[in-house]
Every structure is written in structure tokens, then in C-alpha cells.
């Protein structure tokens, strides 16, 4: 049972959610693929800490399990797979982007405001402990989208997708103190399989095209 006062707990949860958001901005500002992967792993660690805090403060035990799985899958296994891909393909830097970094950061700032605006009418329904996290979670999802559409490399697109997943997980933990256990396990399983498929897939693309720059995938344009 919680020994921390609820106010302090709420501050800590908000702090961790804010750190998650901060790593999103760092990913947007980073060109080096290896660093992007590391930042994603760091974000997953913050996510696990947030989940542990919520689990500790509310006394709901299955969130601990989710935190452990987050560390295992999103902070260890998936970054390893991604790094292996980066090394195999020998692409270290994102040279060209659709949007340059300063503009990208500005757009992301706008997305955060948008997220707070959208969730404003519904946050009062949430729990006191995690009231601001829902808006932050939506902001992370939106930034994940932005990463996916603004980058060309397959690896960064996948990181964008995983950032979206992190945002969703934060939303589930923050807004509803975690989804039912079976659903959470299913989601982790899906994410893990998706990671493995991407691993095999980039290999096949590399064999067929000699590059993983998705902007070369143009043969099917209307």
C-alpha cells in the first residue's frame, strides 16, 4: 500500500510522463540511427518506471508485470534487433528528411498543444493521480506519427511506430490503471512479433533493393 503522500506520487508520475515526452523530442532532433534506438530504449525505461510508480501507488499488482515486460521487450530485445539491423545494413545517419529538424521540433510543439486541447474536456473523468498523463500520452502518439511520416529510413519508421506504442501504453496505464491483463499480454506479444517481422523484412528489402531507404519504394505509385 502507498506510503508516499498522493500529491508527491502525482508529481512523480507527471515527472516521468514528461520525461517520456522529452525523449520523443530528442528522437525528433537526432539524425544518428544508433542514438535514435538508444533514445527509444531510454524512453521505454521511463515508461517502465512510470508503470512501477503507478503500480506502487495504487497497489494494483499486474501493472508490475507490465513494467517488467516493458523493460524486457522494449528496452532490451527490440533495441537489440534494431541495432543489429542498423549494423547489418551499414546505414548510420539519416541524411535526408522531408522536414528539417528545427521545423520538426516546432511542429511537435504544436502537436503537444493540440493533444492537451483535445483531451481537455475528458481529463476530469480520470484518476487524480494521473490526470495529466492522458494528454501527454496523446502527444507522444501524435509525435510518433510525425516521426513516421517525416523520416525515410525503414528503421526510423519502425522507431516511430514503437513510440506510438509507448504512448498508447502510457495512456492505458495512466488513464485506466492498465488494461485487463490478458489484453496487455496480447499487446506485448503483438509488438514483439511485429519487431521480429520487421527484422526479417528489412533483410528481404535489403536483398531485393540494396537499400532500406523507403523513398526508393516508388514502383507502385499511381
Amino acid at each position: 500500500m502507498p506510503t508516499l503522500p498522493i500529491n508527491l506520487g502525482s508529481y512523480l508520475v507527471n515527472l516521468c510522463s514528461a520525461l517520456l515526452l522529452l525523449t520523443c523530442f530528442a528522437i525528433v532532433a537526432q539524425r544518428r540511427l544508433m542514438a535514435c534506438v538508444d533514445l527509444f530504449a531510454l524512453q521505454s525505461v521511463f515508461l517502465a518506471v512510470t508503470a512501477t510508480l503507478v503500480a506502487y501507488l495504487t497497489g494494483i499488482h499486474h501493472i508490475y508485470l507490465a513494467a517488467v515486460l516493458t523493460i524486457a521487450i522494449k528496452a532490451v530485445i527490440l533495441p537489440r534487433i534494431l541495432k543489429k539491423i542498423v549494423r547489418q545494413l551499414n546505414v548510420q545517419r539519416e541524411v535526408s528528411m522531408y522536414v528539417n529538424i528545427p521545423t520538426g521540433l516546432l511542429i511537435c510543439g504544436g502537436l503537444v498543444i493540440l493533444a492537451f486541447f483535445i483531451t481537455q474536456p475528458i481529463v476530469h473523468l480520470g484518476f487524480l493521480l494521473t490526470q495529466d498523463s492522458l494528454a501527454i500520452a496523446l502527444a507522444i502518439v501524435l509525435i510518433g506519427f510525425f516521426i513516421m511520416v517525416s523520416r525515410l529510413k525503414a528503421v526510423t519508421q519502425v522507431i516511430g511506430f514503437l513510440v506510438i506504442e509507448n504512448g498508447l501504453f502510457l495512456a492505458a496505464t495512466a488513464a485506466a490503471y492498465g488494461m485487463p491483463l490478458i489484453v496487455e499480454l496480447g499487446i506485448f506479444f503483438d509488438v514483439l512479433v511485429a519487431g521480429l517481422i520487421v527484422g526479417i523484412y528489412t533483410h528481404q528489402i535489403q536483398e531485393a533493393f540494396g537499400s532500406v531507404d523507403t523513398s526508393r519504394l516508388k514502383a507502385l505509385k499511381e
Binding site: 525503414a154 511506430f161 511485429a194 523484412y201 523507403t214 519504394l217 514502383a219 507502385l220
Partner: peptide, 13 residues
């Protein structure tokens, strides 16, 4: 392969 990649990314998102 191209169609599959598009499918995987768009549908997952």
C-alpha cells in the same frame, strides 16, 4: 515486398 512494407506500416499504425 514494397506492397507488403506499405501494408505492414500503414495497417500497424
Amino acid at each position: 515486398l514494397e506492397a507488403g512494407w506499405k501494408y505492414l506500416i500503414l495497417c500497424s499504425v
